[in-house]
Design a binder for these strands. Structure first.
Length: 831
RNA sequence: GGACGGUUAGCUCAGCGGUAGAGCGCUUCGUUUACAUCGAAGAUGUCAGGGGUUCAAAUCCCUUACCGUCCACCA
């Protein structure tokens, strides 16, 4: 053995050997109880960063359980990372003087696909460098066909249950990147904005966005504001930069009389608050800013200007016309920025797919409250609840090409002459508009599948949408499902349903046995003159004129399904049942706390919804690795440290140990070079302890001493006081490390191991035994060292394996068993 | 505007009800025949400030300050 441990001679060779021998597969413990972790999917196009290095926690758990005899599965996978990847690619295009707009959708998709394929496999190699015992034969990709199928099925189920619906709403739209984002993806930033006080006829109002005034469809005041009471309900004639126009004054509770002048302009198409106010007062949506970020024709001579330019030009002209009373230059507000390009997001009205969150969030909350899912460290429970309790519907449409296309089809509605009308009570109209796809009837409308009909508001007699019948069920009231989300309304008891029917047809004397018809339909709405039908399914429906939804799913929509989509598409290849049955729910979901709402909470919701079971039993969250000065690593700051360089320099074992040692689970840490150096020295110390023992071996006559003894055997043969003490200490250490690992107290275990190995075993025990070595004490020395190695193996897999193989003539430590200790032995022999 | 986390030795951080801990650094001595090193011994802290609970508080409660993070549609 060399005097110094050289990780470069060891790590690559050993990893290859492990992988070739199939040690990472759960099959190596065929009888074991299942233990499973799904690795958070890494960006297929990405490179390793310290966030990935923290997954060492998962490797520790997997190696620990594998040695304990579990059938342990650690399943890797990669994510197409839609927005991330498309934007990286677009940046490349820009460098070549091109843009995404120069290509057709299909072309762009192919280009990105090729680009990703060229880079794929990179991150997997890097994860191997860290020693991660991932079952690579089971690796999945979010764009694998069978994964996509599962994503489609989930979407279809959501649609059929009335939980996925299409609605035109204001979305956070980045006019630079050309896509909308979910609420979570908006970065809010405090900014100093100019607050303009603008004259609206006799009124003055304050706004930061004078350029949206062309989209104003009202001005609002608080209903109790005495100053303005006389104007409410009036139509004011006002002077604008485009000449005279008229505007209505409304009263709305949402107006804060204290802010500005207490008057606010209502621009439903460009402000989230105003959109809501507009809905309450049935104000028209007047979009004056286009998806290209430019003013449209409503802006008159300002049309074609970008928002910023338009604001400047309009303000100048207003000032010239004396329409601006004053400008407050010290006003602070928060603006929503695109998390990718940092441009200001424009709230724009767009028709998108939304997922109703409340029905999904409730069981996810309940799962944690009832301890079916446990969160570690416990402090994160609050954040989990906070997010789920205040959740809003999730916008899952993205206007990018790199992603899973949405299996939905639209077509323009062409009413036929003999269009049939189906009446809906006024109060059910909102249900239909938000995605109701079933209706119960007591009258046979003589519909056939494929028939078209118009939705009519029975009270106002107005047509508000169209539909095509896709399924008809003839039944009786008593057999109508009460908890049918696709019907919009759900009933707790049959009584309520019968009441509802009586409301519409009192003359029939409805009972459970009354005949009923259930019509399921695809639906389309009348909106601003546009009419279209919606159909959900992968295949183009029969009929003319269907066009597929051009959008793709939010990447997190597929990620949210990762625990079951990976397991449903994997098997143990012996035909004895799929991985889903065996490994779902997974044992632990381990990831950085920063994606708790983005990913973990959504997995909990979607997992429970789709499979009826929790997706994982435990949530374990690790902290962030900051730069040595404690600042968050980021490309823009230029302080990103490449973990591979650190691995090259210190060895994977040292990097792993340094990340665990002295850092409480879930806490952030700063990358510490002294700690890395200390960990490197620790690997070297272990190496030299082994070297010392090897040297002693030659002094011993009995050469059969290579076999390690169990704790029980050691206890029996220890004669010398110091030997007995050592055996006792090793037993206690085994117990402590086992407990700490089971409780996810990785740092405790690492610290105890470091302390015991170095300061007890090496400094005290070896120093003592050195001068009195004989066959008996050598056995103790050798065997307790091997136990130490096994305890250390989950943390430092490479050195421990290299030494172990030398001691055991090539046998792997990975297929040895975790040491058991007399006191709390699980009743299994330790070898 | 809400919420969470942090504030402990020069530095990086553990500890979270029972007389202050680790790594690195520092001081002294020793070793260089397991250890590009290692060992032995040592110094160093009103555990952010204030108040409270307790026989006992770095550890629980309240409060203040500073730092950090997350969430939130105020023109």
């Amino acid at each position: 053995m060399d005097k110094v441990y050289n990780h470069k001679d060891v790590e690559e060779r050993i990893y290859k050997d492990w992988e070739e021998k199939g040690y990472f597969k759960p099959e190596i413990n065929p009888q074991g109880k299942p233990y499973s972790i799904i690795l958070p999917p890494t960006n297929a196009n990405g490179a390793l960063h310290f966030g990935h290095a923290m997954y060492v926690v998962e490797d520790i758990l997997i190696r620990f359980h594998r040695m304990k005899g579990f059938s342990a599965l650690w399943l890797p996978g990669t994510d197409h990372a839609g927005i991330e990847t498309q934007f990286v690619f677009e940046k490349k295009l820009r460098e070549q003087g091109k843009s995404r707009l120069d290509f057709k959708r299909e072309e762009l998709y192919e280009m990105i696909k090729n680009y990703v394929n060229e880079n794929r496999g990179g991150i997997e190699k890097q994860l191997r460098r860290l020693g991660f015992s991932l079952d690579w034969s089971r690796e999945k990709y979010t764009l694998d066909n069978n994964v996509i199928e599962i994503v489609y099925d989930t979407f279809k189920k959501l649609f059929a249950d009335g939980l996925a619906y299409r609605a035109k709403r204001l979305v956070n739209y980045c006019t630079f990147d050309g896509t909308s984002f979910s609420d979570l993806e908006v970065v809010h930033e405090e900014r100093k904005s100019l607050l303009y006080y603008i004259k609206y006829g006799p009124l003055v109002l304050a706004t930061t966005r004078p350029e949206t005034k062309f989209g104003d469809t009202a001005v609002a005041v608080h209903p109790n504001d005495k100053r303005y009471k006389k104007y409410v309900g009036q139509e004011l004639e006002i002077e604008t930069v485009l000449g005279k126009t008229k505007i209505k004054v409304i009263a709305d509770e949402s107006v804060d009389p204290e802010f500005g002048t207490g008057v606010v302009k209502i621009t439903p198409a460009h402000d989230f608050n105003d959109f809501e106010t507009g809905k309450r007062h049935k104000l028209p949506l007047k979009q004056v800013i286009g998806f290209d970020g430019k003013m449209n024709h409503y802006a008159g001579k300002f049309a074609g200007l970008y928002v910023k330019q338009a604001r400047k030009a309009i303000v100048e002209e207003m000032q010239a016309k004396g329409l601006i009373e004053k400008i407050d230059e010290n006003y602070q507000n928060r603006v929503g920025l695109c998390y990718k390009c940092r441009n200001i997001l424009e709230p724009l009205p767009l028709e998108q797919w939304f997922v109703r969150m409340e029905p999904l969030a409730k069981p996810a909350i309940e799962a944690v409250k009832s301890k079916k899912i446990k969160i570690y460290p416990k402090g994160f429970e609050k954040r989990y609840f906070q997010f789920l309790e205040n959740i809003r519907d999730w916008n899952i449409s993205r206007q990018i090409v790199w992603g899973i296309s949405i299996p939905a089809w639209f077509r323009e509605w062409k009413p036929t002459k003999d269009i049939v009308i189906m009446g809906f009570h006024q109060r059910t109209e909102p249900q239909v508009l938000s995605g109701k796809t079933k209706t119960y009837r007591l009258r046979d409308h003589d519909f056939k599948v494929g028939d078209k009909f118009a939705f009519e508001n029975s009270q106002t007699k107005k047509i508000f949408g169209y539909g095509t019948i896709i399924d008809i069920e003839r039944t009786v009231v008593g057999k109508i499902p009460l908890d049918d989300r696709a019907h919009g309304a759900t009933y707790k008891e049959r009584k309520e349903l019968i009441e509802a029917f009586k409301f519409h047809k009192p003359e029939l004397g409805v009972t459970e046995k009354t005949k009923a018809w259930i019509y399921a339909y695809s639906f389309g709405f009348l909106r601003e003159g546009q009419v279209h039908e919606i159909y959900v399914g992968e295949k183009k429906p029969i009929g003319e004129g269907w066009i597929q939804d051009k959008d793709t799913f939010d990447t997190w929509f597929s990620s949210a399904q990762w625990p079951f989509s990976t397991l449903m598409t994997n098997c143990d290849c012996k035909g004895s049942g799929g991985f889903f049955d065996k490994f779902y729910p997974t044992s632990v979901m381990e990831t950085g706390y920063d994606i708790l709402p983005w990913w973990v909470a959504r997995m909990a919701m979607v997992g429970i919804y789709r499979t009826g079971k929790i997706p994982f039993k435990n949530i374990l969250l690790h902290g962030l690795v900051n730069d040595p000065l404690g600042k968050k690593m980021s490309k823009s700051k230029g302080n990103v440290v490449n973990p591979l360089e650190i691995v090259n320099q210190y060895g994977a074992d040292a990097v792993r140990f340094a990340l665990i040692y002295g850092n409480a689970t879930g806490n952030d840490q700063s990358l510490s070079y002294p700690k890395l150096e200390a960990a490197r020295k620790f690997t070297n110390k272990l190496w030299n302890m082994a070297r010392f023992i090897e040297m002693q071996k030659s002094k011993i006559k009995n050469q059969k001493l290579e076999n390690n003894l169990t704790m029980e055997q050691l206890e029996n043969i220890a004669k010398h006081e110091k030997d007995k003490e050592m055996v006792k200490k090793i037993g206690e250490l085994t117990e402590k490390v086992t407990e700490d690992l089971e409780k996810y107290n990785f740092n405790y275990a690492a610290e105890a191991l470091y302390e015991s190995a170095w300061h007890e075993f090496a400094d005290k025990y070896i120093e003592d035994v050195k001068n009195r070595i004989n066959e008996n004490s050598f056995l103790i020395l050798n065997s307790s060292f091997l136990i130490l190695l096994k305890l250390l193996h989950p943390f430092m897999p490479f050195v421990t394996e290299e030494i172990y193989q030398r001691f055991k003539f090539g046998k792997s430590i990975m297929i040895d068993r975790w040491p058991s200790f007399a006191k709390a032995s699980e009743g299994k022999p330790s070898l």
